[in-house]
């Protein structure tokens, strides 16, 4: 069984909510998705994944959320070969602040450097827009060409 994994990094819980909602929307389209916090995820598992969806916010001066930092550090330290991996990326931010969506940009750069290839466009939610983040993310997810058949 080839399930997709959604990895979220969150500080306020918003990215976790979005991850769960994207998973539910994918399930409605017959795509099974597992939702895991980056803090609970072992980067060694990435070698077994075909497709991951990265969803994270940005905090402080453009850093990743605290819960995502160990995941990021483990990645940059162990430098796994991710050339067999595809990923999609969605960022949550607030354009009130200059560091709007630095967090997801950091992860995209890291995954790309390690050989992974990005599927579709990067999605963004701007908290200042007043739009519900989950609606924006689900709309974005529908544009990602997720392979539906198990390999």
């Amino acid at each position: 069984m080839n399930t997709l994994t959604i990895l979220f990094g969150t500080e306020s819980g918003n990215a976790e909510m979005v991850a769960e909602d994207v998973a539910a929307a994918l399930a409605d389209n017959g795509i099974e998705a597992r939702v895991t916090g980056m803090e609970d995820y072992d980067v060694d598992e990435l070698g077994n994944e075909k497709l991951v969806v990265l969803i994270t916010s940005t905090y402080g001066e453009g850093e990743l959320p605290e819960s995502a930092a160990p995941f990021y550090e483990a990645l940059t330290k162990s430098e796994p070969d991710l050339s067999g991996l595809r990923f999609a990326a969605f960022g949550l931010g607030d354009s009130t602040y200059e560091t709007y969506n630095n967090g997801i940009a950091t992860l995209i750069a890291t995954f790309t450097d390690l050989g992974a290839s990005q599927l579709g466009e990067t999605g963004y939610h701007d908290a200042d827009s007043g739009l519900p983040a989950s609606d924006v993310a689900i709309e974005w997810a529908s544009t990602i060409p997720v392979p539906t058949a198990s390999v």
Binding site: S12, N14, M17, D94, T96, D126, A127, D128, P132
Partner: peptide, 14 residues
């Protein structure tokens, strides 16, 4: 004027 921060209430609505 920080409606983005107030948006966290959407989680709690659920």
């Amino acid at each position: 004027d920080h409606q983005g921060t107030k948006g966290v209430s959407r989680q709690f609505d659920r």
